[in-house]
Design a protein around this nucleic acid. Structure first.
Lengths: 338, 338
DNA sequence: ACATAGACCTTATGCGCAAAAGGTAATTTA
DNA sequence: TAAATTACCTTTTGCGCATAAGGTCTATGT
């Protein structure tokens, strides 16, 4: 490994001078010396050691991307088209700005926290973080953070919170289903803590506004692994007989379900209408193509990096709570009835 | 940030003693002191600074994952289900073994190399690397490397090379198509340098073994971005009239194409049969479900980490050239003709 | 002629950690 | 009883880098 000292020795200079050239502080070095140093750096293709730099500057140029996930979902996490797209967008933007990303996934938030601290990351992007976990992170990690899809409570709003207008998205989707004559709607959600809770609220509101009421039994919580489990899928299939429409909180669930159901003779949308959320690649390639709520995942990722790097450079973000617009995308998975 | 020195000062000990406790070298420290130190470490939730450790030990516990990709594919790279799954598997395995991963993507291999060197990564996983680029990496990076889907030439076989039995996969698929009566087969590939070249060879061999011959015009090279471009898709659509089957080197291409073609009135498989490669989630959810060649991407990722970490710990890998098995998966996208 | 200011260097220091080398008692061994 | 060993510490050094604090020499002003 070639170091600044190597370069300095070869040139008969001090490390300071070489360092100054590297950092473009050329006002303090003669033109001639600058040229000599630059030539040698080029020749030996000098690359600084980030660890060393990180030690002195107390900044690592690393952006941490943390998402809590259950053990049984580890491998599927990044593979999930939604996360993949988001991560890809974040990665591209971070790299374009000369930073690096480090991905942390674990089911224990403390493990994530330990990793973040051990690397001394300059800023953190938290994806889908729940309240209790966020509080833990906040108590130990004092640098800038951006939350994505995290619905943190108001009192922690000193951190940028990027998400969708989830309530509106769900409201519009439900309204659309109602307009198409559906009233027996099952709502399939991940859990009732984060984003999906807000979506459910939007759904409820739309139902009420149209004179319908929601019942607890119509809310189906998808536990991890259920979509890959024959028995769970079967259960949902049996429930489907009571409904004319399934409203899912993600394209992934909708698509997996459509797949299973149509394999078992349920015709979509003739027997059952189906909607998703996100507008992934998947929703476009299935048949019937999925009626869903579009969000701009790339924009989400890009924006979060922009805001975070801004905060790292100590500029106040233009907004603390960003709600990106959603758009109803009508395709072929919903049938008009009645 | 709490450091070893902080801890030592609070206890009236030297940093060495604290460091020894941290590293479990308790034979050199009295029981009583060990207990005192451990209590304080726990209390303050001490986390080592990896940068500092990396400096002294000359190892970073980072595994670099590098893939070259063109500028116009940046954001789609990780989002691609194949890469997502692979990356997810690698990430899970690396984390389970106490290492970290850093992802490097760029269109210029020198930029990747610079990043790898700057972080002093302990080992490198190169995905889909072409020969010339690999030579460049090899000339500057001297630590263990594992190649995935890279078809490096024999002389560099000191590095573990993990891939599929691509030739066999393509051979079997072509044989199947021939058995179903197809002879007018177009072969859609990414380029003729890496994996796809070997697949094409397998295709050719099968054709020849069955008394058919391949012509240059039947080989369609998919340039980046083509699958997202109306004009290119239209071109391919027009070509489709000359064939009874399209054999694609990835599920992604097959699915995107199926999508476009069926939107334009081409019935699959009635008018055109279609096959993929990989057996992604996508291939299962499209209709008709895609006939494809299955590979175990998770196994691929896991194995590459296993081998790499083995090499880092200086054990010779059991194999230098790993060809994972492939399996023909027959679904509904190929029609029997004649 | 002497102070002052720049231009262009170097020396010294410390980031947090690991490990080699060096202590000092208490305990064992021959 | 002296030498050797052991148990349990500390001091010192250096990883590669950035930077504060010092140098020395020349040009400029009065």
């Amino acid at each position: 490994m070639v170091t600044i000292k190597n370069m300095a020795d070869m040139l008969g200079l001090s490390t300071t001078t070489v360092s100054n050239v590297i950092h473009g502080k050329t006002s303090e070095v003669s033109q001639k010396t600058v040229a000599r140093v630059e030539k040698l750096l080029e020749e030996y293709d000098y690359v600084p050691n980030i660890s060393a730099r990180s030690l002195t500057q107390n900044c690592s140029r690393i952006i941490g991307v943390a998402m809590k996930c259950r053990k049984d979902k580890y491998e599927n996490m990044i593979a999930d088209p939604f996360f993949g797209e988001l991560l890809g967008a974040i990665e591209a933007e971070v790299r374009a700005r000369g930073y690096y990303i480090m991905i942390y996934t674990a089911d224990d938030i403390r493990e994530i926290l330990r990793n973040v601290l051990t690397w001394n990351v300059d800023g953190l992007i938290l994806i889908g973080m729940l309240h209790d976990d966020f509080v833990q992170v906040k108590s130990r990690y004092k640098k800038p953070m951006v939350l994505i899809d995290s619905y943190a409570p108001r009192e922690v709003m000193k951190y940028v919170n990027i998400g969708l207008d989830d309530e509106r998205g769900a409201y519009e989707m439900t309204s659309y289903l109602l307009e198409q004559g559906h009233t027996a709607i099952a709502f399939l959600a991940d859990n009732m803590e984060g984003v999906d809770y807000v979506r459910y609220k939007g759904h409820q509101k739309a139902m009420e506004d149209h004179g319908q009421r929601t019942q607890e039994k119509d809310l189906i919580i998808i536990r991890p692994g259920m979509m890959e489990q024959e028995s769970s899928l079967r259960e949902i299939w049996e429930m489907s007989k009571d409904y004319t429409a399934f409203m899912c909180c993600s394209d992934y669930y909708a698509v997996m379900l459509m797949n299973y159901l149509s394999d078992h003779g349920v015709r979509i949308p003739e027997d059952l209408s189906m909607t998703g959320f996100d507008d992934n690649l998947m929703s476009r390639i299935v048949r019937p193509a999925l009626t869903t709520v579009r969000q701009d995942v790339t924009q989400k990722g890009k924006l979060s990096v922009e805001y975070l790097l801004g905060m790292i450079q100590e500029t106040e973000p233009p907004e603390w709570n960003v709600r990106l617009p959603v758009e109803l995308v009508i395709r072929g998975s919903v049938r008009k009835i009645g």
